[in-house]
Structure formats: structure tokens, C-alpha cells
Amino acid sequence: MTFNQLLYFQTVSEYENYHKAAEKLYLSQPSLSRSISSLEKELGVTLFEKQGRGIVLTKAGRLFQEYTERILSECEVAKTKMNEIASGHGYIDIGYIFPLASHYIPHKVRKFLNIEENAKISFNFYQNHSPAIAQKVKMGELDLGFGAYIDNDDELAFYPLQKQKMVIITPNEHELNQYDDVAIQELMNYPIIGYDKGSGPGRYSKRLYRRLDMKPNIIVTCPDEHSIMALVKEGFGIALVPEVDSLDETSIRIHSIKDMDLFYRHYMFWMRDRYQLPAVQRFIEFIKKESED
């Protein structure tokens, strides 16, 4: 059974006349008759029977007509949706890490949608850690990911985004609060709230400590800045974190690092050799231009 056979059947049932249906379909009448006969043979039922000078649907034909109309209607919907996607409409599925959830992603998506040609695009959002996001990108469940760079992953293309200055955060009541700038070595003198070793900032911190030959007393690790900030606020220790938008300066103190410029960078990533829909391509180019500006 082919799409054309369904279309031919629907047209014949509409006109109840092979000659008129053939004219409508720009086919010869014998070709149309053969196609319907082939369909009847495949289905094992008679779809039409003669009545006077025309033809009418049999009981089986009327039942088959219900399914045919449903199928052709769904095909039209699918065609319309594909045309929308081809013209730049459709859905974009993105995943991003928690530090980008409070401002960066909502702000960029809203700015993108405010452009007239993007107004009918819809977004689906997913939050998790970078490795989980990368896995969903590879499986095709997400179009794009925003998070940490993943070493030795040749399947993904990475584009560098914003740099965030690394800072040291302390509780509101802490002896370091007399200083705006704090030396990185002060991390050796207090309990440290660190990142999970599998997270991007966790890997960054580990490389930094190794480079500086430091072995701070990391008493607990957390998945994100929200968890770290909560523990710092309650006086469990201090922490080295990127200066993300969600840091609450009313509950903690934020210190610049003395004599060192340390930055942590986020990335946008996607499957290197996978076809991207026009809307996704436009969003990638938009984010790239935003990053350059």
C-alpha cells in the first residue's frame, strides 16, 4: 500500500466515478483502475461496486475510507509542520547547567525570540550536569548543550561562551571579611566546600590546585553553586567558585583573588556531524554573535 494509492482511493470515493477521478488526478483511467484493483487485492476486500453508471463504496470501502481520511489528514499536518520547520519555525531542545539557569539562558532565549523571524519558535529546556547533557545531545534528545568543556570528546563541537571570574566566598561572619581581595593561598587555612569531581568546576579546581601545588582541606563536595553557597552561609567553610549571577551577596561575602586573574568558561556544544534544523542553526549563530559582542 502506497501513499498514492490512498490518495487515489480517496479521490475515487469522492467522485464515485473513475473517469472524473482520473481527470482530477491527471491519470489515465486504466492506470487508476489498475491501482485500485491492486489495492483491493492487497487488502483482500472489494472497495467499490457498480451502481448504475457510477460506482459506490462497499461496506468494507466505507470503513477503509475512515482510516484513509485520518491518514491523509495526519500527512497534511506533518507536511505543514515540516514546512514550518524548514522556514525556521519549530522546536529547539536545549540542556544547560544550573549556574546558567537564573539569568544567562532565560535572557538569551528571550532576546532571540524577540527577533521577529524567531517569534514562532518554541524551546524545551533540560537542566543537569554537563556529562548528562552531553549524553542527551549525542542520543539526539537535545539539539544543544550549555556547560563545561568535556575533554577528549571528538563527537561534540564546542564553542566558548562567557568567562566568569573566580572568586572566594566566605560567611558573613568571617575573619577574612576585613579584606576585599584575598590570596589564593588562604584556601589552605580554612575548611573548603568544593565541587563534585565530575563537574566542570570540580575538574577546573583540581587542575588549579595541582598547578599551584596546593592541597586544601575539602570537607565536602557539592554539585553546584547553590549548594556550596548554602553551606558557606551556615559557616561550614569557604569556597572557590565562579562569580555567577546567582551568588547572593546578602548572605555571603564575595572576595576577588589577589595577584591572580582566574576565570572559568562555559561552552555551547552540539553533535559535530549531525544535521541541524534551520531554527537550531539560527540559534547557534545568534549565541555566537552574542558571545563575540
Rank of each mutant, 00 (worst) to 15 (best):
residue 2 T to L: 14
residue 264 Y to Q: 05
residue 42 E to T: 08
residue 42 E to Q: 11
residue 150 I to Q: 10
residue 261 D to P: 12
residue 228 I to A: 01
residue 205 S to P: 07
residue 75 C to I: 13
residue 29 Q to A: 14
residue 185 Q to F: 15
residue 43 L to W: 04
residue 149 Y to E: 00
residue 31 S to F: 15
residue 140 G to F: 06
residue 113 L to C: 05
residue 37 S to L: 14
residue 31 S to G: 11
residue 87 S to V: 03
residue 288 K to Q: 10
residue 92 I to T: 03
residue 187 L to T: 11
residue 258 K to N: 11
residue 231 L to R: 02
residue 14 E to F: 15
residue 85 I to D: 00
residue 148 A to T: 06
residue 258 K to C: 11
residue 163 K to E: 15
residue 106 P to H: 04
residue 110 R to K: 12
residue 260 M to C: 13
residue 188 M to S: 15
residue 216 P to K: 12
residue 147 G to T: 06
residue 118 N to Q: 09
residue 293 D to L: 11
residue 203 R to L: 12
residue 31 S to T: 15
residue 234 E to V: 04
residue 41 K to S: 10
residue 251 S to E: 09
residue 66 E to A: 13
residue 179 Y to V: 07
residue 282 R to S: 10
residue 37 S to H: 10
residue 45 V to A: 05
residue 249 E to H: 15
residue 19 H to P: 14
residue 30 P to I: 09
residue 198 G to C: 01
residue 65 Q to F: 14
residue 180 D to M: 07
residue 216 P to A: 08
residue 164 Q to A: 08
residue 80 T to K: 05
residue 289 K to A: 07
residue 281 Q to L: 08
residue 88 G to Q: 06
residue 29 Q to H: 12
residue 43 L to K: 08
residue 292 E to R: 00
residue 122 S to M: 13
residue 65 Q to P: 00
residue 288 K to W: 04
residue 106 P to E: 05
residue 92 I to N: 01
residue 14 E to V: 13
residue 128 N to R: 00
residue 174 H to Y: 07
residue 242 P to Q: 07
residue 50 K to Y: 05
residue 71 I to A: 03
residue 244 V to H: 03
residue 262 L to T: 07
residue 257 I to H: 02
residue 50 K to M: 06
residue 188 M to L: 15
residue 7 L to R: 15
residue 73 S to A: 14
residue 136 K to H: 02
residue 248 D to V: 09
residue 110 R to S: 11
residue 79 K to D: 09
residue 133 I to G: 01
residue 75 C to K: 09
residue 18 Y to T: 11
residue 37 S to Q: 11
residue 254 I to T: 12
residue 80 T to I: 09
residue 287 I to Q: 03
residue 57 L to F: 05
residue 172 N to Y: 00
residue 59 K to G: 06
residue 247 L to R: 05
residue 21 A to P: 10
residue 99 P to L: 03
residue 279 A to P: 05
residue 236 F to Q: 02
residue 31 S to A: 15
residue 157 A to T: 11
residue 232 V to H: 02
residue 173 E to T: 13
residue 103 H to M: 12
residue 209 Y to D: 10
residue 87 S to H: 06
residue 52 G to P: 09
residue 105 I to W: 09
residue 47 L to W: 00
residue 208 L to P: 08
residue 195 Y to K: 01
residue 26 Y to R: 10
residue 189 N to D: 12
residue 171 P to N: 09
residue 163 K to G: 09
residue 11 T to L: 14
residue 105 I to N: 08
residue 170 T to A: 08
residue 168 I to G: 04
residue 263 F to P: 02
residue 154 D to G: 03
residue 11 T to H: 06
residue 178 Q to G: 13
residue 91 Y to A: 12
residue 120 K to V: 04
residue 157 A to I: 07
residue 44 G to E: 05
residue 282 R to D: 05
residue 229 M to I: 13
residue 13 S to L: 06
residue 116 E to V: 08
residue 139 M to A: 08
residue 29 Q to N: 14
residue 70 R to E: 15
residue 208 L to Q: 08
residue 187 L to F: 13
residue 194 G to W: 01
residue 65 Q to M: 14
residue 158 F to G: 03
